[in-house]
């Protein structure tokens, strides 16, 4: 509760934490984060991972984002092991308003909520291994520059395509969409993308075809859609066949048989962020009826 003094990390799991809160970790006599661990046996036991929204500080863990504190136990069940992170997925459904005051009526100021509709959107920050959709903005010698929605453009070598050689260049034009994966995503360096996996296979990555429709959604929705056994995707796939590419940077590319069918998918995906499962089922029932 009181920031600054610090609270035990276990007590806060599932609770809301705010930046500036200090989480204390249980003291372990053999726990020494600074010592380099050698040998496979000693490494996993009691190892604590510090997830998103948390930083290490002298007293324990410093919270840097607001959200719910989550904890996952290590495999062995060691008390100090496992991972802590802050779940700051902003699943907000609308704008919020709170009042504090010495009683009486809330301030008589313009009702902002009545004028605006909230659309949760967070700036994308490249993460190593993320699959994203990039737009080619420039061809500079042997690299392409891709806009991935981050603070900086990502680079993509012309050799990072399946079957590409110095002789056999991929046919990439400015404006093309590319589905790839981050090989280097580092705060100090330019992000680098590839369209092949470690064995040299494309595994679905590469240039996205000519037609189709690209649109942006919030990062929270993308995470929801990419979750294994996502109900939305399963229900959609029963409507009619279509192609779908989901990028972790919030971009979605859709292509169905006709333009009309494509736009229906787009509208459903954009709307399902704010629909409950019940509302969605009704919408799908209406669509499959005609």
């Amino acid at each position: 509760m009181a920031a600054g003094r610090g609270v035990a990390a276990e007590a806060c799991v599932g609770q809301v934490v705010l930046p500036g809160d200090v989480l204390l970790l249980p003291a372990h006599p053999d726990e020494d984060g600074e010592r380099l661990r050698l040998g496979a046996g000693a490494a996993p036991r009691g190892r604590l991972l510090c997830g998103p929204g948390l930083r290490r500080c002298a007293a324990g863990l410093l919270v840097t984002k607001c959200g719910l504190l989550r904890h996952r136990q290590a495999g062995g069940g060691a008390a100090a092991g496992g991972a802590y992170w802050v779940d700051s997925q902003q699943k907000r459904v609308g704008a919020r308003r709170d009042y504090v005051g010495g009683g009486g009526e809330p301030p008589s100021c313009p009702r902002l909520t009545d004028l605006f509709v909230h659309e949760p959107r967070l700036q994308y920050v490249p993460v190593k291994g993320d699959h994203v959709i990039g737009i080619v903005t420039a061809k500079a010698g042997d690299v392409f520059k891709l806009d991935v929605g981050g603070s900086e453009q990502a680079s993509l070598s012309y050799l990072a395509f399946e079957g590409a050689t110095k002789r056999n260049r991929p046919n990439v034009q400015v404006g093309d969409l590319i589905y790839g994966q981050f090989l280097v995503a580092n705060k100090d360096m330019e992000p680098e993308m590839v369209c092949i996996d470690s064995s040299g296979r494309s595994s679905g990555m590469g240039i996205i075809g000519q037609d189709g429709f690209l649109f942006k959604v919030s990062l929270g929705l993308i995470r929801k859609l990419l979750a294994p056994k996502c109900e939305i995707i399963q229900e959609l796939s029963q409507l009619y066949p279509f192609e779908l590419v989901l990028g972790m940077n919030g971009r979605i590319w859709v292509k169905a048989k006709t333009v009309q069918q494509t736009l229906i998918i787009v509208n459903i995906l954009e709307a399902c962020e704010y629909m409950t499962a019940e509302q969605r089922k009704q919408a799908f029932a209406k669509l499959s009826g005609n």
Binding site: Q90, R92, A95, R96, R97, G102, G103, E105, P106, F116
Partner: peptide, 21 residues
């Protein structure tokens, strides 16, 4: 939500906040 401003001698005007609008 309304809350009585707590604390002795602390009489801030009523305040409110909206996020993500």
């Amino acid at each position: 939500e309304k809350m009585a401003a707590a604390g002795g001698g602390c009489c801030l005007r009523p305040f409110s906040c909206e996020q993500g609008l």
